[in-house]
């Protein structure tokens, strides 16, 4: 082999190695058509001013989606935030409050509502904030953000969780191996291990309802209109209009997940 041959072969090998495997894939037109595109892009809007913490949404969700009612897991939940004028946490009998610097709770995911000013700080302990000490107090409904860049889908080693064309992240129960990577990967903590089916479980915007033209169970059961679902591809949808022209916030935007649950009257204390 002379110098010229060596250089020629080297260039050929480098050029060959640079072609990505996907470029060589034969694209089946049938498969492309099957994947299709959708006229829908589901988004959610939650109003933390309108939410009164009645918890009817959590109850409806658990019954609608057959999530074990008394198990400490839920696809959606309601959080209470009580922020004091002095900016400090309240403590009980000198014991530390395990909260992260604020008084917040979500007993039983808010399934039975909030019927007492006592804040549940875990381990059966409660603290109470005096009415005159409250600077801000409100409720925040939480559910899956159906991220445009879903970290839970990215980490799934078997392709059991995926994002549909209409923007909802689903779990294939027959394909899930229960490794739990997605549960760890979700920055919002919306995923959990289904105690009976032993697979990853999550909110899917009641996919069986929205695809039939119904509202999600939580939206339908909310008497105050604090929860709304809409189609971002419909410019006249009231939810779309609020997201486009109103002032909305999202949770943990710094993670780059592009969450699709938008909040009205969000506070910086909400995590």
């Amino acid at each position: 082999m002379d110098r010229r041959d060596f250089l020629k072969r080297t260039i050929t090998i480098i050029a060959g190695a640079a072609i990505p495997a996907s470029a060589l894939e034969f694209i089946d037109p049938k498969r492309l058509l099957a994947a299709g595109s959708s006229d829908y892009k589901w988004v959610f809007l939650a109003d933390t001013q309108k939410c009164v913490g009645c918890g009817f949404c959590v109850k409806a969700c658990k019954l609608e989606n057959e999530v074990p009612y008394d198990a400490d897991v839920s696809r959606t939940w309601v959080e209470r935030y009580v922020i004091c004028k002095d900016g400090k946490m309240r403590v009980e009998n000198g014991m530390p409050n395990p909260g992260f610097g604020i008084n917040a709770d979500s007993p039983k995911a808010g399934r039975d509502g909030f019927t007492t000013p006592q804040i549940d700080i875990g381990e059966g302990r409660h603290v109470e904030v005096k009415e005159e000490d409250i600077s801000k107090a409100f409720f925040v409904p939480k559910l899956c953000n159906q991220c445009d860049n879903p970290p839970c889908v990215q980490v799934c080693p078997v392709g059991a969780t995926y994002k549909t064309a209409d923007g909802v992240v689903l779990v294939d129960r027959s394909w899930c191996i229960g490794c739990g990577y997605c549960i760890m990967g979700c920055p919002y903590g919306v995923r959990f291990f289904h105690p009976l089916l032993k697979v990853a479980e999550k909110c899917n915007f009641c996919y069986h309802r929205i695809t039939k033209g119904m509202k999600t169970a939580c939206v339908q059961s909310c008497p105050f209109g604090a929860r709304q679902i809409g189609n971002l591809k419909d410019p006249n949808d009231p939810v779309t209009r609020t997201i486009m022209y109103g002032r909305v916030g999202v949770l943990k935007s710094e993670y780059g997940t592009k969450p699709q649950v938008y909040y009205l009257a969000l506070d910086r204390e909400v995590r």
């Binding site: 498969r31 609608e64 889908v153 990215q154 995926y162 549909t164 069986h208 039939k212």
Partner: peptide
């Protein structure tokens, strides 16, 4: 296969979408 969401987020069994659409509705309105 891969749906509209692409290689990173789209791999799935397409029939599973049907499974989720066929869950029984409990709250009738």
């Amino acid at each position: 296969g891969v749906g509209e969401a692409g290689y990173m987020y789209g791999w799935h069994n397409f029939t599973n979408e049907k499974f989720w659409k066929e869950i029984k509705v409990k709250y009738q309105g």
